[in-house]
Design a protein around this nucleic acid. Structure first.
Lengths: 360, 360
DNA sequence: CGCGTGCATGTAAGCGCATACATCAGCCGC
DNA sequence: GCGGCTGATGTATGCGCTTACATGCACGCG
């Protein structure tokens, strides 16, 4: 294989599995008790500095690594935080994972990742797994069809919902999707569109609906009604977005003058379909996509985008969960919904939206 | 807040922290010994089916969740697998995380995520943290400047390197970047380019260099030398890619006729710069980017891309680590480098590469 | 000079669970 | 009809660590 010879030589097969160094070993080797070793290692002031030094030095010399499992059991301490999400390829969750790993890591916690793929069965297993791992807290983006068992398993530790809610906890961090889609729809309405299609997700309990609500509300506000024929709700995959866009935009005659997309995955598929169909954007149809404004800005034309504040959301949820696991309870954030935060999305207006061509 | 009233009501504050149900509780309630309960719950054949049923039913009724920490300690079993990566926003790692979480999860393991940001200090802490958590195995993408301490902490469990190597283990899964860049460079050479620039990463121990090697080798193969002036090595951030592309392509006179980009993050920055500079692609300069072919296909023009086989890599590493943690040792994969797999990248030729304009 | 005080350390009891070993019943064969 | 054997269950130990409590020592005071 071509790259073979350039790679560093692999390490020799690990030494023949010598038993890991334990506190008892250190204690025996230094002629002190395990209690003293434990105290020294944990920085207890009750041990003479001189002895403590000796113990700590010897521990590092011997390559001692404390067994967190045993420590956790003995001290009834919790050092893990669960992260329960459908899909870590989704930018919202990967950024949250990064941020939480950093902030919680600095506080001595480690993230346990549970990826459910929005499958209720796996979600349940994951929830039980996390609960069994004695996590200090859980960040969860529950699926639409979460089971009762799962809900029960998630009942105990301090959990905070993220990006979606199933009413699991009084704490949560979300994007204010409804407001975002009110704004996006208004933008189209103001340009003169009256035949607007919405392509969204079937995501039943959470933000999928908030977005549709926003579209509806903005229509109502303008004295219009969103035509049910113009609403497509599908599972949020790129392929579905691609297919739906082909359907919606394929037939020139039956085309809406504007298309709102309510999911980041769908958006990618729509962008691809628009390119394939070579439909004039925005002359023939205006397009608003959702999610990460980065790639959509590189498209031709650059796509007007509902830009979700991924980083802010991540920051806020990390702070929130950190507060919960360290201090026990977080101070209430607002009067009516303590602990729930709704972050605003920004509408990034680019070249994919414009006035509709006059109907002939 | 606008979306407030539409969200499901948060759950009532969790019940006043009743003690979790333990094996001993179940045993007492059913007038059997803890041993019998434990056996029943673990499906031991040594317990009468009738009793087993009763115990299992009662356990689920009481909402018993086994304490994995204690179980792990008592049975000396390991139920975690560590996942040590620089950055989970990178598609290579997020896909690997997804796949590993699924496959390992199905086998009863749970991923512990350690994100280092390529900071040696955090990397070391993470390695110790994982080792202390008694992981069954570790998937690691070591940083270029991994410390000796970290190396030592990573010595024991069955570790497999992913995407990058620091010679930590005899097992690993990588993209054959060198071959990929030989192919990409040949593609440009065949088109007639002789003034090719390479924008890559400073990533010292691993694939950053393999890519540059590929570019060099392909040049050598054609009897050409890669001009050192045409090589830019920077840290792989989008901003750096953006800045470097502005530098390289800004001055029309001093422009190379083709640009190879050797990092997915840099590629995004380059794409943005190209768009800003309004430089003719491929008439004035051909561009080859690296990484995910999805977004680069939506650019204008669609970018020729070294498409990394993220999914295959993820699949292979998941299988590999699963084999290691369950069976102990994996069968050797190849004659010379047992356990190391190099997966080929595909060159997706699109519209951003063409023959150079004749020099005047 | 004896006794309380406080501090450094040791001793031992778990944490929740699995499991080696002991126990005890029922069964077979002779 | 009794020894040994199998199979179901109980008893008790320990995983590696923390920590309440006991111990012992040096010191100061009356």
């Amino acid at each position: 294989m071509s790259a073979t010879k350039r790679s560093p030589a692999p390490a020799a097969p690990a030494a023949p599995a010598e038993r890991a160094v334990r506190v008892a070993d250190l204690a025996a080797e230094l002629n002190v008790s395990t209690a003293t070793v434990s105290r020294a290692l944990n920085g207890s002031p009750a041990v003479r500095p001189q002895i403590a030094r000796r113990i700590i030095d010897h521990a590092r010399l011997r390559g001692y690594v404390p067994n967190r499992i045993a420590r956790s059991l003995a001290a009834r301490s919790k050092t893990f935080v669960g992260f329960l999400v459908p899909d870590v390829q989704n930018l919202a969750y990967s950024i949250a994972a990064t941020t939480c790993a950093r902030l919680l890591g600095a506080a001595g916690y480690q993230l346990i990742l549970a990826i459910t793929g929005d499958d209720p069965r796996r979600e349940h297993e994951a929830a039980v797994g996390l609960a069994g791992a004695q996590v200090a807290g859980i960040i969860a983006a529950p699926s639409a069809d979460i089971t009762e068992d799962c809900r029960a398993a998630l009942a105990h530790p301090s959990v905070v919902e993220f990006n979606r809610t199933a009413g699991l906890a009084p704490y949560g961090v979300f994007c204010d999707d409804r407001a975002a889609f009110v704004e996006a729809t208004r933008h189209l309405l103001d340009l003169g569109h009256t035949d607007i299609a919405y392509l969204g997700t079937t995501d039943a309990v959470s933000n999928g609906l908030w977005r549709l609500d926003g579209v509806r509300d903005a229509h109502a506000e303008a004295g219009l009604a969103l035509d049910p024929e113009r609403v497509r709700l599908v599972a949020p995959t790129e392929e579905n977005g691609h297919a739906a866009a082909h359907e919606l935009l394929g037939a020139r005659a039956a085309r809406p003058t504007a298309l709102l997309v309510g999911s980041s995955n769908l958006s990618v598929g729509v962008a691809r379909a628009v390119r394939e169909l070579a439909v004039g954007v925005p002359e023939e149809v205006s397009v608003v996509v959702y999610g990460d404004p980065k790639w959509s800005g590189l498209c031709d034309p650059a796509l007007t985008t509902v830009a979700v504040p991924y980083r802010e959301m991540a920051q806020v949820v990390a702070d929130l969960v950190l507060g919960l696991v360290t201090e026990g309870q977080e101070d209430a954030a607002g009067p009516d919904e303590p602990g729930r935060r709704w972050l605003p999305a920004a509408l990034v207006v680019r070249s994919s939206t414009g006035p509709p061509r006059p109907r002939g």
